[in-house]
């Protein structure tokens, strides 16, 4: 496997947009690459003042249980450093596959695309993890 030794050239770029980190994953995310990404994001969140992380997976066609776990771990790690993670742009077929596998990623905030994710992060945070600011009903 060519991606077994990740280097800087193949790593997923992490872009900073103000207080938000934007990670756009394209193509298949190999296990080592996913780990590398987790490492990068955690470092960036710790280094700078980041309030939100958006992981755009609109270019990903396969999300397996390992990647699902890594994504959940990224979110959990970022949350410890007071940053919210939004998973954006999941494809319908990927969503169906994940649900059929029983991987509903309960801890993750989700959004339709990056635009929605930015909107979501602009809203005041809610500690319920549902991705929605809770208001008095």
């Amino acid at each position: 496997m060519t991606a077994s030794i990740p280097d800087r050239a193949t790593a997923v770029p992490v872009l900073a947009l103000g207080q938000t980190l934007l990670v756009s994953v394209q193509g298949e995310l190999y296990d080592t690459l996913a780990e590398q990404l987790q490492h990068d994001i955690t470092l960036r969140v710790a280094d700078s003042e980041v309030s939100g992380v958006i992981i755009d997976i609109s270019g990903v066609e396969i999300v397996d249980s390992y990647l699902g776990r890594v994504l959940a771990e990224i979110a959990a790690g970022a949350r410890l450093m007071a940053a919210r993670t939004v998973l954006a742009g999941m494809r319908p077929d990927v969503a169906i596959t994940l649900v059929e596998l029983g991987l509903t990623l309960p801890g993750l905030i989700t959004a339709l695309d990056v635009e929605c994710a930015l909107e979501l992060l602009a809203r005041p945070s809610a500690p319920n993890g549902s991705g929605l600011p809770e208001r008095a009903a």
């Binding site: 994940l98 649900v99 339709l112």
Partner: peptide, 13 residues
């Protein structure tokens, strides 16, 4: 519940 979970993964409530 599956449908609800899939919709949530797509960012919809």
């Amino acid at each position: 519940m599956k449908t609800v979970a899939a919709a949530r993964l797509m960012g919809a409530d």
